[in-house]
Amino acid sequence: MEVFLAAAIVAGTPLLFATVGELITEKSGSINLGVEGMMLMGACIGFVVGLATGNPVLALGGAALAGGGGALIFAILTVTLRANQVVTGLTLTIFGTGFTRFVGQDMVGAVIPGELRASFAKVELPGLSEIPFFGPVFFRQDVFVYLGYIVVILVAIYMFRTRIGLNMRAVGENSGAADASGINVALYKYAHIVLGGALCGLGGAYLSLVTVPIWQVDVVGGRGWIAVALVIFASWNPIKALFAAFLFGGLGILGLRLQSMGVHVSQYLVDMIPYMATILIVIISTMRNRKEGMPPSDLSNPYFREDR
């Protein structure tokens, strides 16, 4: 069980980064459906830099820049040029796929050097890893997973305990009122869209650098879309996003696990579970209709001062 849960965390970490990234973007009022594309760009550039330098920090930096760069295109188009968010996000995904195929064409089958892989080896945190049950599950992971925990905590503090975080939520809830109170709406939107994209890029890099350190064309495989759904599941709360991502990580590897236990279910049918669960979540969270579980009021409403 502990082994399975630990593996679920590994499978859930890319989802975690992407979910938190999209969560920040949505909290500031924009829905960016380009998560899949930004994850792909992050996976690709992270891999390229990792392969060339063998340096984990540079690889992660490259991935974050790639994801953030994709998000910047989205921000320019939707915030400044007022393009439709849904269509622009989809375009970003299509662009990210093309970009990754183009840049990654000569890398198929390339393997991340051992030194870089070693820097993502499991590290047992002294003390914490000795806690019964929780230790082996949460604290015998790689550095990247720990980075995920830190990001969640920082984002939670930022959103709920800082002035800038409050302003950011104000922009997402009511851009007009935020503008009237002197908040630079466009700047806040730009900053959080780009930050969100950088986190999505990191999520992609986990897949290409840690999960399978060999380059393959479609590394992300739809996880970006699951992340979009997880934001709803987590009702825009970063702490809930942590558990949601790990739960879905577990669902994703359930099929293989069941087969190794001798349960004969088609792997492809089990593979459907995360997607069906997502639909169920969308339905349930719509039914609950509680105040706290609702999307930011100004989500995906473009804000133009002149239109008021």
Binding site: W225, V228, A229, I232, Y275, T278, I279, V282, I283, T286
Partner: peptide, 11 residues
């Protein structure tokens, strides 16, 4: 119920 169709159709 007014569910979000983007995610639904995608899944």
């Amino acid at each position: 119920m007014g569910t979000n169709e983007t995610i639904f159709t995608l899944m």
